[in-house]
Amino acid sequence: MNRNATVWLWRAASFAVAASFIALWQLIANLKLVSPVFLPGPDRAWTSLVRGFSNGDLGNKLAGTLEHMAYGWLAASIAGIAIGAIIGSSRIMRTYVAPSLEFLRPLPVSAIIPVAIAMLGLTQAMALFVIAFGAIWPIMLATIHGFAAVEPRLYEVARSLQMSRLAVIFKVALPSASPDILAGMRLSLTVALILSVVCEILAGLDGLGHWVLLSARAFRSADLFAGVILLGLTGYVTSVAMSMAEHRLLAWQAAQR
């Protein structure tokens, strides 16, 4: 009980510090130390946020970004786990294919955007392809790694039980690789958000990326900050949700240890 109280006290103090930073920001804006063209006060950003939501503009843009991110990320997750499982469960694929993938890993994925534009134009399909392509790497490599790191005795058990390859993948390898896979999916979530914003900026697709760019072009700094705050919030909420999902899904492993 007592320890709980101190934890809450620290939290409250920490929130107070954050609040004082916002107050400082307000002060700087009020004193016009930085031109209001670039830096709106938190009051103006908040007003813009409320106005944007009440007339539905900002809500639509947020939904657009979330949609791009979710479709791309889900496609990447399904394809990444499937391809990773195929490569990870086969020794031949691991020697011949995995090194090429490791070689491609340090490639800045955004460099694929011009190629995707050349193939698919400035379209929704281009955005989905880019997001999925960028988000697939961490998931696929984590799956391969997770499959390679499965306790060898589990494979031996599976063999002595004469399980089929599919059964081995679903009953042995996937569950035991799930911490790696989920960690890869969490990394991919950030990648998906960043690439969604970049694609929206480039292709003018409905979303927060497009919104912040238009606001910047028109020097509507309050709208711009409202968009950036929403993007930060999106990053935060999705990562918290992913942690919670990870916690839930891996509870059985924690219990086992």
């Binding site: 063209v37 958000l193 960043i194 711009l224 950036v228 990053g235």
Partner: peptide, 13 residues
Amino acid sequence: PIPSIALLPIALI
């Protein structure tokens, strides 16, 4: 959690 690229328009203006 603010994606770095979201700062792009701010840095731009």
